[in-house]
Amino acid sequence: MIQNFADWLVYGIFGIAADTHFGAALNFFVYDTIKIMLLLFSISLVMGVVNAYFPIDRLRTFLATRKLYGFQYVLASFFGAITPFCSCSSIPLFIGFVKGGIPLGVTFSFLITSPLVNEVAVAMFLGTFGLKVTLIYALSGIILGVVGGFILGKLKLEPMLSEWVRKVQATSQQEALVWQAEHTTFAKRFPTIAKDAWGIVKGVWIYVLVGIAVGAGMHGYVPEGFFESYLSPDNPFAVPVAVLVGIPLYAGATGIVPVMQVLVAKGVPIGTALAFMMATVGLSLPEATMLKKVMTLKLIGIFFGLVGLFIIISGYLFNLIL
Rank of each mutant, 00 (worst) to 15 (best):
L283N: 08
Q72G: 08
G149L: 00
L155Q: 15
M218A: 08
L75V: 14
S44V: 10
F41H: 06
A18L: 06
A6F: 08
A288R: 10
S314N: 04
A288E: 00
L285D: 06
V49L: 11
G149Y: 04
K99N: 06
Y316M: 02
L320H: 13
F108L: 02
I112G: 01
V30M: 01
I300D: 02
G105R: 13
K35C: 04
F237Y: 03
R58V: 01
F14N: 12
T171H: 09
L152V: 07
E158K: 14
I91Q: 01
G255W: 02
D196W: 06
R189C: 00
L26N: 13
F94W: 12
G96S: 05
L131G: 13
F226H: 00
F5P: 10
Q72T: 08
V10P: 11
Y137D: 04
M277T: 13
S114N: 13
L126E: 01
I16Y: 03
K298Y: 01
G149H: 12
G96D: 05
V168D: 12
T289S: 05
G225W: 15
W198H: 10
K132S: 02
K188A: 07
V214I: 15
G308H: 01
L209H: 11
F97P: 12
L309S: 01
S140Q: 10
T65L: 09
K35I: 10
I212G: 12
V257W: 02
F62H: 08
A181F: 01
